[in-house]
Amino acid sequence: MRIIAGEHKGRVLKAPKGDGTRPTTDRVRESLMSMLASARGGFDGAVVLDAFAGSGALALEALSRGAAAACLVERDGAAVRVVEANARLLGYGSDRARVRRADVLKAAVPRMGKPYDLVFLDPPYATDPADVLALVARLAAAGLLAGDALVSYEHDAAASAAVDDLAASAGLAVATRRAWGDTVIDLLRPDGARTEGAEPPATPHEEETR
């Protein structure tokens, strides 16, 4: 894995060993970052939560592109050590990249001084979408989400219908949906919030499947 763009473009990142994590491919990550840049007008100044950090590639990519700070949460100890090593490799201290070992579905999410503008959700595909979106609802209830926050949720395509129903119940709207084979990424936002450049969810024939 490499940082795709920004101040650390081309820098190689480590990945956790074994099958306990499922890193987002460079191609999907590049498309995701383009979606986010279009939806929010770039990354400058964003406060980021990477709730299932894995290697930390998503949050570290956002930092490279101008995000102000990121909290990277991961429950696996070996993966946490990889995240810490990747942050050090890029020269980020705890003021820019705060790494925590925790299960975000059970533990409180750390505060970063300001609400999160951007949340990455890339859990194992077997994770119940109800649990994932309940996490977003908890963040909002605790005042940890900015009013115009964007939430990126990567999940199996088979879960799309459930995500639609659960997002509505959690007060979220699907701003954009893109698919790459069985991988789907939804950009969610608080229902009623305006997101510059956001697109309506794609219909099945509009989704990217190459």
Score class of each variant (00 low, 15 high):
Asp128Met: 02
Arg96Phe: 09
Leu172Ser: 05
Val80Tyr: 03
His155Glu: 02
Ala39Pro: 00
Ser94Met: 07
Ala168Glu: 13
Gly20Trp: 10
Val12Arg: 14
Arg27Asn: 08
Ser31Cys: 12
Ala141Arg: 11
Val136Glu: 00
Val151Ile: 13
Ala59Thr: 07
Ala107Phe: 15
Thr127Cys: 13
Ala62Met: 06
Asp131Cys: 11
His8Ser: 08
Leu139Arg: 03
Ala173Lys: 08
Ser38Val: 12
Asp182Asn: 13
Asp95Trp: 09
Arg98Gln: 09
Pro16Arg: 13
Ser94Tyr: 10
Gly10Cys: 03
Arg40Lys: 12
Val82Ala: 09
Lys114His: 14
Thr183Ser: 06
Ala68His: 08
Gly54His: 07
Ile3Gln: 03
Trp180Val: 15
Ala157Trp: 05
Ser34Ile: 15
Gly45Met: 05
Gly45Arg: 01
Thr25Ile: 09
Ala108Pro: 13
Arg111Ala: 14
Ser160Trp: 11
Pro123Ala: 01
Tyr92Cys: 09
Ala140Gln: 11
Phe52Gly: 02
Ala70Ile: 01
Asp164Trp: 06
Ala193His: 01
Ala97Glu: 09
Arg65Ile: 05
Thr195Val: 14
Pro23Tyr: 08
His8Thr: 11
Ser94Ala: 12
Gly181Glu: 08
Ser34Asn: 15
Glu199Ala: 15
Ala79Glu: 02
Arg11Phe: 14
Asp50Cys: 06
Pro201Asn: 00
Thr203Cys: 07
Ala107Cys: 11
Ala107Gln: 14
Val28Lys: 00
Val12Trp: 14
Arg81Glu: 10
Val109Asp: 03
Gly56Tyr: 07
Leu13His: 08
Val119Asn: 02
Lys106Glu: 15
Leu150Pro: 04
Ala173Tyr: 04
Gly45Tyr: 07
Leu172Thr: 03
Ala140Cys: 09
Val80Ile: 01
Ile4Ser: 01
Ala159Thr: 05
Thr203Asn: 04
Ser38Cys: 14
His155Tyr: 05
Ala146Pro: 13
Gly20Asp: 10
Ala51Gly: 02
Lys106Gln: 15
Gly143Cys: 04
Val184Asn: 03
Ala161Leu: 12
Gly45Phe: 07
Ala137Arg: 07
Val174Asn: 14
Asp95Gly: 15
Asp156Cys: 04
Val132Cys: 06
Asp191Asn: 10
Ala53Lys: 06
Ala126Cys: 10
Leu139Gly: 10
Gly6Glu: 02
Phe43Met: 03
Pro123Val: 04
Ala202Pro: 01
Glu206Ser: 08
Ala141Lys: 14
Ala161Asn: 00
Leu58Ile: 05
Glu154Asp: 05
Ala59His: 09
Ser31Asp: 10
Arg138Met: 06
Glu199Asn: 08
Asp26His: 03
Gly45Ser: 09
Leu121Pro: 04
Arg40Asp: 04
Ala108Glu: 15
Arg81Gln: 12
His205Val: 14
Ala15Ser: 12
Leu13Cys: 04
Ala68Gln: 10
Thr203Lys: 10
Ala15Ile: 13
Tyr153Thr: 05
His8Trp: 05
Ala198Arg: 07
Thr127Gln: 10
Asn86Trp: 07
Ser160Pro: 02
Leu188His: 00
Gly66Ile: 01
Asp164Glu: 11
Val119His: 00
Met1Ser: 12
Val163Glu: 06
Glu7Leu: 11
Ala198Val: 00
Leu60Pro: 02
Thr176His: 15
Leu36Glu: 00
Val12Asp: 15
Glu74Arg: 00
Glu74Asn: 00
Ala162Met: 02
Asp148Asn: 12
Asp26Glu: 09
Pro115Tyr: 07
Arg194Glu: 15
Glu196Pro: 09
Leu150Ile: 07
Arg178Asp: 12
Asp50His: 00
